[in-house]
């Protein structure tokens, strides 16, 4: 049963930086807090997963970071306290904006921002009545300087029952989700673009993964934001989407002997709208990899050229 979106039930219990940069960076100006957060109940769930949102407001000029923050920064994370057996999924981010400051790429969220998280119910199901969800948001916010902090929030999530029995304002909750829901990445199928066979090429120090785009809207694809990849450093300044293809330079953490990643995922921007794109590299392609660099007398490492190969989408 899908429940109607409902609102933020309890305000933040605690909001403030746990660590601080310069004293003048602790607050957003005019005495207002730099960051405030509320826990929003988007879908109460029962009997299925609940969908909660962290609605964050930032002082003017400050930003938070996307799941791949870019060249610097830290993505926010959450510590949850939920009914026993309930499990929180990953924090879902809206589409970020890309900023370039002094040669450093930043993938960030401006004020205000909504993060979403799906909460799976315990095996025994949700409690019969309302249950409490608590979260501690760990964040790093930056403007000219940066501040890190923690903000604790909680909400009472209604159990099964008619909407009239639930606390909170349905109208405000609906408004929050209706306003911010469209900012989340959508399925690629609706973009008018599909991904063609991928190609990975070793350029001497990084895998250069090229993803050709096909479809009537390919020319409208303007950018690609890469999700973090275990075992690789993303060369964010080199990531591009133009001429109908995505280019992702990826430096392997374990050196040139490493195969390319099994998949590349991220958000493709088409006509200003974000779409989820995930492209897998075939296992056959991964069999060819550049020769491992030899270790010199003191473990010295060397770059070595590697082959070019074609990779197929799964």
């Amino acid at each position: 049963m899908k429940t109607a979106p409902i609102l933020v039930l309890l305000p933040a219990l605690l909001a403030g930086p746990a660590e601080a940069g310069p004293p003048d960076a602790r607050r957003g100006g005019e005495g207002s807090p730099l960051l405030t957060a509320r826990l929003v109940v988007v879908e109460a769930g029962a009997p299925g997963p609940a969908k909660l949102g962290l609605y964050v407001e930032l002082a003017a000029g400050w930003h938070l970071y996307w799941v791949n923050p870019g060249d610097s920064g830290l993505a926010p994370s959450v510590r949850w306290a939920l009914p026993e057996g309930a499990a929180a999924g990953p924090l879902r981010h809206p589409v970020p904006r890309k900023a370039l400051r002094e040669g450093i790429v930043s993938l960030e969220h401006e004020n205000p921002v909504l993060f979403l998280c799906e909460i799976a119910p315990p095996a025994s199901g949700w409690p019969a009545g309302p249950w409490k969800a608590s979260a501690v948001l760990e964040w790093m916010a930056c403007r000219d300087s940066c501040v890190t902090g923690e903000t604790a929030v909680e909400a009472l999530v209604p159990g099964p029952g008619p909407p009239s029995a639930r606390p909170g304002s349905f109208a405000e909750g609906k408004a929050v989700y209706e306003r911010f829901g469209p900012l989340f990445p959508r399925p690629l199928a609706g973009s008018g673009v599909t991904a063609g066979p991928a190609r990975a090429e070793w350029d001497g120090s990084a895998w250069r993964v090229e993803v050709p785009l096909v479809g009537e809207r390919r020319a409208a694809a303007s950018d690609f934001f890469v999700h973090p990849l275990d075992g690789f450093v993303i060369d964010n300044a080199g990531v591009a989407c133009r001429d109908g293809k995505i280019v992702c330079p990826l430096v392997p953490s374990r050196g040139p002997g490493s195969p390319p990643p099994p998949a590349v995922a991220g958000v493709l921007i088409v006509d200003g709208i974000g779409y989820e794109l995930c492209a897998a590299v075939s296992k056959q392609a991964a069999l060819k990899s550049p020769a491992a660099r030899p270790a010199g007398p003191a473990g010295r490492s060397y770059s070595s050229p590697g082959p070019i190969f074609d990779a197929a989408w799964r």
Binding site: S72, R101, E102, I104, P228, S253, G255, P297, A298
Partner: peptide, 21 residues
């Protein structure tokens, strides 16, 4: 390096504040 072995993890994503160039 001191053991004369290859560095197993030679590149990672640094994290922190941007350098204030």
């Amino acid at each position: 390096l001191l053991a004369g072995k290859p560095v197993a993890v030679s590149a990672t994503q640094p994290y922190g504040c941007s350098v204030k160039y």
